[in-house]
Nucleic acid binder design. Structure first.
Lengths: 195, 195, 195, 195
DNA sequence: GATGAATGAGCATTCATTCAT
DNA sequence: CATGAATGAATGCTCATTCAT
């Protein structure tokens, strides 16, 4: 089955929406702006998506699917932790836009959008599997979760989003930032893994 | 003297704006909604603030001032790290709303608002002073900064914002979450301080 | 084909805008009033015109186009001056609304809108062609221009705008005003043409 | 009696209002802008004037008064027409701002503001007195009036307002424009006076 | 699949004006 | 005389969305 034209249009909409949502935030990015930048009629967007929010959800689903695919492929757990971190960060840097959207939406205190936690869970589960001796006491579980989420997941997700601004603000070169971040996250998170 | 004390009106606007910006995001929270919730005429808001953005900046400045005051007062560095973390987090939990706004705005990839980094810098400087032997090599400096920002500042700021949703999503009690977070951040960040 | 023909909507907007701009002045005539009087939704006006100013410019362009068409048609220069003046004034009386807008906008001392001079130039060029022996000395040129602009163009444009008020204020009948104006402009301007 | 402070405030408001009304038009110039530019509180303006329109009327009255004063002084009719025109234009050039306001307001087709005609009448009466043999037939009267108003008053008033833009648009020096205008108005209007 | 045209509701902002002091 | 504070109504303009074609 060949991909239809309609499919390409849908993809283009998602692509442009991802960019604009990430640049300006979901609320500030208008359907009109997406339509203009994509070169697609506004009404056509509503042919492919029922409303603005459903574009966001399609973006989320895309990301979740790609993470699942990665898990299936990368089942060969890296023995080398550094290699593992690097692959992780490299993947997320490409996803920078959707990651920023995910974080911004999760931080609206009124928003009951679970997507960030959904994705975090799946990431953390991968990690759980990478680690052998997981103790079962509730305290250990809570500590493990807090460790994974707040000192692993959040720093990495925040890094890919804030990297550029961090570099600009502190006047650090790209290479140096990456090296420093890898070293920091290794020491703080991976070398202290709760096991 | 005029009808009412304008200072109180200004404070009320800031208070309500902080709540709504945090709940819905800066863009989704409208001046009309702020005016309605504050019981203050829309035009009165514009008597006190030149535009919507300047309300945000007033909020930022308030936070920066309060952090400066804290630094001046808390010069007696806690010998006990745990006490120090707890005070830090307790303070920020009260500031949860402005913290969420700060993070959301920083994560707009097009936004050149430096406020998050400004505040982080000030926090990190306090930390720098708490730690005695700071080495001067650029690599060490970069590592120290990355450690502070991405494994200290960002996790703590994210925690106060995401705490509630985290608890709800993972079904953990308030006390347990706090304990687990304290333990995790201690192990990952404070016990591994770059010195 | 869409619900209605957008061209008609656009024309209706221009028509109503011309009336209201002329009646109240550009600034006092609101888009809301235009929308209400035209029976067209406010947002529809912004579908057809990017902003309020661009409605004004569309009006100017319409007038310029109609003047160009007239020039092309009326190449047979009237041998009788009186016939010529009458045709000229008759045409402009139909354009009274846009003429009044043009004059009002030109008289804002801060406004760098050239439209009045653009149109005057084109009118004066027609006149230049009607007259045979045009001398080339700069003084003569300046005199010719001043004569055409200030004692020909401006009086005629002002006449079509102020005619009604002039009649009412001085208590003169329509026919008498026209006759008197024709006689006056003939004596003062056309009979004294700089040649 | 010394001029009070309040009097000076009132004068300053009128002065600034005249400038802004002339620059932007009556409707576009806001009380807020006047207050800011004058360095006078908005409420203070309402202490001196009942509403916006009454500022305009005060401006009109000032102009009318000054014209009356001139008539009383200048009763020695210049035997030299050229001198007379020059004095007339020189006076009006200083009044450029109020003249532009007067013309703009008169050109709103809905406006029943008579001020322009009031002032024109007074000017034309002076002229009537300068000229000896005024015939009494209605036709002659109408012609005289049309001649004075449309080929004398309107060109001169328009000249002082449009002079700068005219110069800029046609690329003519200040001196040349004045000379050309004087020559044109002399030939067209004064040399052809209806008597 | 796609689009030009249209819309009701809402946006941030400004208006002329008021009033207690 | 003067002003800081406040306001109802309006401003120009944009929003997400709809619908006939």
């Amino acid at each position: 089955m060949p991909k239809t034209d309609g499919y390409l249009t849908r993809e283009r909409i998602l692509q442009v929406a991802e960019t604009l949502f990430s640049e300006q935030g979901y609320d500030a990015a208008s359907i009109g702006a997406i339509s203009k930048l994509a070169g697609i009629n506004k009404a056509t967007i509503y042919y492919h998506f029922s409303d603005k929010r459903s574009i966001l959800h399609a973006l989320y689903e895309d990301m979740i699917m790609q993470m699942r695919e990665r898990i299936v492929k990368n089942n060969s757990s890296d023995s080398n932790i550094m290699d593992h971190i690097k692959k992780e960060v490299d993947f997320l840097r490409q996803k920078k836009d959707i990651v920023s959207i995910l974080l911004m939406e999760a931080m609206k205190t009124n928003n009951d959008d679970d997507s960030l936690f959904l994705i975090a869970s799946s990431e953390i589960n991968r990690e759980k599997n990478r680690i052998i001796n997981l103790v079962n006491s509730p305290e250990k579980k809570n500590l493990f979760l807090a460790h994974e989420f707040f000192t692993g997941f959040i720093p990495i997700f925040s890094f890919v989003v804030l990297e550029d601004k961090y570099r600009k603000y502190f006047g650090i070169s790209e290479e140096q930032v990456i090296d420093a971040f890898f070293a920091a996250i290794k020491r703080a998170h991976f070398d202290t893994h709760v096991i």
